[in-house]
Each structure stands twice: as structure tokens, then as C-alpha cells.
């Protein structure tokens, strides 16, 4: 394992690599945009306006969940075997997983903001405490990104299919999803911030746990 300072540099250049790759093949990102937009549009046609907070909230997070699975699934599956071997020789496993998690977090943040935009535009915005809801988006994106990055690594080792990705990730995303849905429901209802402290602590704890586990376990997936 590389020393701390060297590792930071390595992670930084790996993230830059991811962003440049994404920029080069814009179709992947544009595809996600279109995915979110058309899902929201379908929901708009089926529901028209939603004023019931639980339904609004649940639908929002379910759309985001599916977008997240699609967005993060490609983080390992897209890479060819040759490129993975090359990365293996030049970078440490820990840097690779951390850089992928950070990159996916940025991607998820962007997607969740775009989702919120389309969602407010078509289905209506009923959120009363917007800063708190944004905090929920941040915590939720971080959770989805970190869990799904690790699952994507596992699925890519096991035959690269997206069904596997969904099967492996949905059950372990449930705790996160339930907590984040409760959290943002409180934000929608505009409840006092103190109500949400326990959920915030829980989400932060889950995120730290997932990143720590990825850090420890990814080297076993990486070596072949």
C-alpha cells in the first residue's frame, strides 16, 4: 500500500481519469439524463400531480435508486480486461476503489439534482425544508454510490450481468433506503431539524461502514 500523500495523488489522478473518460464518451452520461427525464415523464403521465408527501417521496427515491443502479453499474463493467490489468500494475487497489467511490458520488449528486429539477418541474415540488432535503440528497447519493460501487465490482467479477447487480444490491440497500426515505419525509413535512439527527447519524455511520468495508475487501476482488 502506498503512503498517504502518494495515495492522495494517485486517487486524484484516477478521479481525473474517470471524469475525462466520461467526457470523452458523452453518450453514457447523456443516456442517464435521458433515463431520468423519461422516467419522470412517465410518472408524470401516470400520476399527474402528486400532493401526498409519502407517495411523492417514495417515488422520488425509487426513480433515483434505479438511476443509481444504472449509473454505477458501468463503473467496473465498462472497463475492458486489458485496461483493468494495466490499472492493476500502476495503482494500488485501495486508490482504485476510493477514486471510483468518490467519482460515483459526484455523478450521483449531479443525477439527483437533475432528478429533483425534472421532478419539481413535472410532478411538483412540495418540499418545505429545502436545505434539509438537500442534505438528504447528499447523504443518499453518498450511500447509493458507495454500496453500488462495491457491488458493481463484485458483479463485474461474476460474469458482468446487470440482473446480478440488482439482485445483489437491492437487499443491502434496503436499510439505507428506509432511513433516507424517513429522513427526507421529515424534510418534506418541514419538521424540526432535531427530529432528523438520529437518521443523520445513522446514514453517516452506514456510509463510513461501507467505505471502510470496501477499503478492506476490495483488494481481494482486485487480485486475480
Amino acid at each position: 500500500m502506498a503512503s498517504g500523500k502518494y495515495m492522495l495523488k494517485e486517487i486524484k489522478s484516477l478521479i481525473v481519469k474517470e471524469i475525462m473518460l466520461e467526457w470523452k464518451q458523452k453518450y453514457a452520461f447523456n443516456g442517464l439524463l435521458l433515463y431520468v427525464a423519461s422516467t419522470v415523464f412517465i410518472c408524470y403521465l401516470s400520476f399527474k400531480q402528486i400532493i401526498d408527501p409519502p407517495v411523492w417521496n417514495a417515488l422520488f427515491w425509487i426513480i433515483l435508486l434505479f438511476a443509481a443502479v444504472n449509473a454505477v453499474a458501468k463503473s467496473f463493467m465498462q472497463e475492458t480486461r486489458g485496461r483493468q490489468l494495466y490499472m492493476y500494475t500502476i495503482a494500488s487497489a485501495q486508490s482504485v476503489i476510493l477514486s471510483k467511490i468518490i467519482y460515483n458520488l459526484l455523478l450521483m449528486l449531479l443525477i439527483s439534482l437533475i432528478n429533483l429539477l425534472f421532478y419539481s418541474l413535472f410532478i411538483g415540488n412540495i418540499v418545505q425544508d429545502m436545505p434539509m432535503f438537500m442534505l438528504g440528497l447528499l447523504l443518499g447519493s453518498a450511500g447509493f454510490a458507495s454500496v453500488l460501487t462495491m457491488i458493481s465490482a463484485i458483479a463485474s467479477r461474476a460474469g458482468n450481468n446487470t440482473t446480478l447487480m440488482a439482485i445483489l444490491s437491492f437487499p443491502i440497500l434496503i436499510p439505507m433506503l428506509i432511513t433516507i426515505i424517513r429522513f427526507s419525509k421529515n424534510a418534506i413535512d418541514g419538521l424540526a431539524a432535531t427530529v432528523n439527527y438520529q437518521f443523520m447519524v445513522m446514514l453517516l455511520g452506514l456510509n463510513v461502514l461501507v467505505v471502510a468495508l470496501s477499503f478492506l475487501l476490495f483488494p481481494y476482488l482486485w487480485r486475480e
Binding site: V147, I154, R157, L209, V210, L213, L221
Partner: peptide, 17 residues
Amino acid sequence: RISAVYSIFAFSLMLVF
């Protein structure tokens, strides 16, 4: 190897749940 990684990852999260 891969299923061991998944079971450790999943078990820890389920424990929290």
C-alpha cells in the same frame, strides 16, 4: 473469494439493519 467478499459486506450491513 468473491462470494466471501459479498457475504462479509452484506452481513455487516444487515447487522446494522
